[in-house]
Amino acid sequence: MNNIRKNRLKDQAFKVWGIACTLLGLVLLLIFLGNIFTDGIQRINWSFLMNLPSRSPEKAGIYTALMGSLWVLSLTTIFALPVGIAAAIYLEEYAKKNKLSSILEVNISNLAGVPSIIYGLLGLEVFVRIMEMGASVMAGSLTLGLLILPIVIVSTREAIKAVPKSIRDASYAMGASKWQTVYLQVLPASFGGILTGVILALSRAVGETAPLIVIGALAYVPFAPLSPMDQFSVLPIQIFNWITRPQPGFVENAAAAIIILLLITFIMNGIAVYFRNRWQKKLK
């Protein structure tokens, strides 16, 4: 009887502890969000989105940084998506399970943990200097593409792994080739999972600052990029730049820019959730 009561007590204690841990993260986030919103929300209007950077905080806008971020985001997607998904398909469906593939596997997981500034140094050397792209959108996107590649590969592999073997068996037994099985069965069945992983990886890319500073992205650009070879700025760099200024007006601007950046990430995550739910419903 005593033992049962003790177990029940432990159970209760752990529950309370768990709730406290969950709340800790949430409360901190809420405080941060509240802070940012009270500082920045009144600054958000059409001209803030459409204005070029300026020395006076009331005239300054995020147009160039926003455009820069969108450019970088799209090009990063174009680079990282096909390469990452193809690599994951190869590792999961084609590669024989041997020493080499397990070395590859461990290394890819490790790459996902390499600090982003290291990728910046790599991008500076390879893309900016050797390939002579300069501090362009292209160089920045390729660098971020490399940065999120391991994440795309790992999450795509997890999604592919979750497809039951029985579906592959059925497809092979019908006389499908490996590619047909991957293309017609495995990819559609893992689409939701792959998409979720990809969007989470891109959300990370959109918030990256360090590697872009290293390759030489500018804090002040008077124009939005018009081609992949133009110089650029991105939202996180713009935010960083504003926060370092002494005038209080720029703090407001920074808060407003953070809201926009958060909005972009939330929308992307929302899309991921939407597609995952739709895909799950389709499976049923």
Partner: peptide, 19 residues
């Protein structure tokens, strides 16, 4: 092999229709 499997069909233990 693909040709062979068109000639030799297979039904599995657990029903495994495609989704």
């Amino acid at each position: 092999v693909e040709q062979l499997r068109k000639q030799v069909g297979m039904v599995f233990q657990k029903p495994n229709p495609f989704p």
